[in-house]
Design a binder for these strands. Structure first.
Lengths: 131, 131, 131, 131
DNA sequence: GTGGTCTAGACCACA
DNA sequence: GTGGTCTAGACCACC
């Protein structure tokens, strides 16, 4: 597995690096970009390509294993777990977006914005990121 | 000022309590629900009604003071600062929603959702929270 | 919480230290020696009293939290989680012993020992450890 | 020697595969199921029937050789060593079970189980595995 | 005071 | 080659 482009991290974010990795891998598995049995980059490779300490990568991988997303193969690279083999349906993937949008809706309400205003901003941002 | 209903905190969230307080107060000031000169609950009252350590409230208030949102009056309750008296324009308030929606857009892209799917979910959530 | 006598570790064992901690805490919670809301020793205190690196303790505590045995209280000591408040019944606790005895039974069979021989040895060992 | 049924491995266990092999062979020799001069499966055959890396088998065999349990014959299969020809006495074999039961006794004590409870469970499990 | 994150680097176990 | 464990120690965030 190519360790470049596997995930992106933002070292400036307050979100810990290991958690950024966990969330991105989970989304990519849900989206079907990573399939059951796919090898993921080794701890050392990914650590080097992200310029991060190997233990940070290892921590993320361990968490993903404990959540059943990855499987450990002794002495070998880790792979995407079988029970996550099927990419989730669009309906399921949409649900994974709910928490963040729920937060956005709460903020919009506190800002006393209309639904139209909030939706228009979201549409604008979506167009910016993938015009 | 009634210390109940002033703000809501979610102790389960990973968002620090003091930051939840700061953000909510700023949004309510921006929305014009809190106006210049309005008294806010005392540290002690709010700490009690939220079941939170007073120092946590104090830290939030101090941050809000250093940002010019609140003003300290010796021996009296803090009040919303004068320079924040006017509610911000709708255009300004919309901008405050941008960071969260930007995050949502990034997640939607990693989940390989279409713009339509993402927008529909947001619309649904907005309808749920204020039908 | 007294950090001495909280748990014992065997640095010579091949069992990792953090896992020894996890298993012992889980057994003590099951046995009712640790009850819901009980504070556990701080990471630093326990690390010092066991002469172990704090991160090793922290790793064990994090695992116990992710399994729902402990609860994190921001800025404060961790406590035994509420959903583990009730000591488990004797029947439940007995079940926790099953895996190890299952392993022992498999070994006894491969050694072609009779049930009597295996049971007598277990009885002897139990008498030794708590005469 | 039939490479099926020679040993069983549990890839899910935390016990390393090579050690599972070593312990099982030692127990079967002690029990007299494998006698001096008996041929054991070749590294290649056993690796294939267990779906394990040949080097793992080789490591186990080498360990057994260094402990004097197996003997290497140039160009031929390895055999059970002569000095291990006699099955060990029942008293000796019972001792090989001690470490696991010692561990079980320690767990029983931490679970605050009575000797009776622990013994009853062991008896039940022994009955299940060989009624 | 509390726990969390990260780095640097050693050493081990496994295949 | 793979991942795992542990130490030493810095720095941060929270209460």
């Amino acid at each position: 597995m190519d360790s470049d482009h596997f995930v992106h991290i933002n070292t400036g974010s307050s979100e810990p690096i290991y958690r950024q990795l966990v969330e991105q891998v989970k989304r990519r598995v849900a989206a079907g970009q990573l399939r059951a049995g796919d090898e993921i980059p080794s701890v050392r490779d990914l650590a080097q390509s992200l310029a991060v300490h190997p233990m940070t990568i290892s921590k993320a991988y361990s968490l993903l294993e404990s959540e059943g997303v990855l499987e450990r193969r002794r002495g070998l690279s880790m792979v995407v777990a079988a029970q996550h083999q099927r990419a989730q349906s669009a309906a399921d993937r949409v649900e994974l977006l709910r928490p963040t949008l729920h937060q956005a809706a709460a903020e919009a309400r506190q800002l006393q914005l209309t639904k139209i205003q909030a939706l228009n901003l979201f549409k604008t941002i979506l167009d910016e990121s993938a015009p």
